[in-house]
Design a protein around this nucleic acid. Structure first.
Lengths: 231, 231
DNA sequence: ACCTGAACACCGTTCAAGT
DNA sequence: ACCTGAACACCGTTCAAGT
């Protein structure tokens, strides 16, 4: 175990950045106050001078990631058309989560809203507003997009995120008895592609499929509302 | 603290049902092996004869909830039309999660898939299959719906689930400086309704809005695919 | 076969004390 | 102002031992 001994003074900012580093390197479950102190060359108890408790560390960690997302988004040239703009912003945000696979779990567990997340949403609302959507529709849109607005989707199978191995023929035969429809679907859809490093689910494709489905639906509502011109 | 002293023998099933009860009564964070043992009138260590570890307890808890969902769904008379059927099944599943507000967090943290969840998905795939959707489209549908297929949506604000208090005029004025679009939206949309026990966000309405948006989009794809008749 | 007691290796957090 | 040492109240889990 490599314990660094920096001469630098502790600070809230340094503590949070180091926490992100630990989560990146060894996973979010390995982020403990004691290990955080160790990595900073200090005692765990010293951290409490800079943060109130561990919950606040996790709040801060989410804020650091959201800030990374905002930096990425700021460097983009967003198309004027709202749907294309939102799409590009969200896919850019998703790239940040691909670098921090543990981050979705932290975001969904936060009960305090991070200022940087607010800034992100403010930008998204601005895009939609410029596209002529009503505030009512924008509000519903944010709920409909859910975590997808920030760039990740809560998958219920393989929450680990890794590529799922294609089920074997024996597994499918065994499944067919109790889960006939699922087995039938998988038989047709889960062909193992030895050419691809992806599993049989292409996460990027699925994310874009769902995102476009929602954005297209919202666009349709916006246009029909425009024609009706009633609010 | 009321420690019951049942004469009943322990079993995996009893352990899991009791775990659900603890989560319902005092929250998922209060579910510890020691408290679980206490509630069963046994030592925490006795649990390890029936379950391998706490992860397995949580796996089992998710399975118990999924089984409650399946029971509810089984008692339904589902309309033949796939979209109406899926909608009814999903909204019934959501009702179960309203009784167990802590359950979404457990589900998204599971890496092992519960047999009962598989059964649930098998039913949903069956509905769509009978509706004429291709297995390919069904597969994409499950990804697009994400956790919504099981009956909950991952909201990024207020993950607590409680009704959000409407922001005050002072809060909005303060927000307007740094978050103009968000403040503008909230000013228009977050009117406090003193008649309603709901907050300014009607969770049920928002869930149905997002669900219908996705189901309608999928239906459109299914119909256009049918017309093209190319697979 | 089923349950327990004692113990271990961790947690987050407090508080008085050091510089 | 900033950091530390010792201590507390918890965790999950093991293992040899009891019935």
């Amino acid at each position: 175990v490599e314990t660094s001994e920096p001469r630098v003074r502790l600070s809230r900012d340094l503590v949070l950045k180091t926490a992100v580093q630990i989560a990146d390197d060894t996973g979010i479950e390995s982020l403990t106050m004691r290990r955080l102190g160790e990595k900073l060359g200090a005692e765990a108890m010293s951290l409490y001078y800079h943060v109130a408790n561990k919950e606040q560390v996790l709040d801060g960690v989410a804020d650091v990631i959201a800030s990374e997302i905002n930096d990425t988004v700021a460097s983009l040239h967003l198309p004027a058309e709202w749907k294309a703009g939102a799409r590009k912003q969200i896919l850019a945000a998703r790239k940040v989560f691909l670098r921090h696979k543990w981050a979705p779990a932290v975001f969904v567990s936060r009960t305090n809203t991070s200022p940087e997340v607010m800034r992100y949403y403010d930008g998204l609302v601005g895009l939609m507003r410029n596209g002529g959507l009503s505030n009512d529709l924008i509000h519903h849109s944010l709920h409909a997009l859910g975590s997808r607005a920030l760039g990740f989707n809560q998958e219920l199978f393989d929450p680990g995120g890794g590529p799922a191995p294609a089920p074997t023929a024996e597994m499918l035969d065994q499944m067919a008895g109790t889960l006939p429809h699922l087995a039938g679907m998988l038989r047709e859809v889960a062909h193992d592609d030895p050419e691809s490093t992806l599993g049989w689910c292409d996460d990027q494709y699925e994310f874009e499929f769902g995102l476009d489905l929602i954005l297209d639906g919202l666009d349709r509502l916006a246009e029909s509302g425009e024609r009706a011109d009633l609010d």
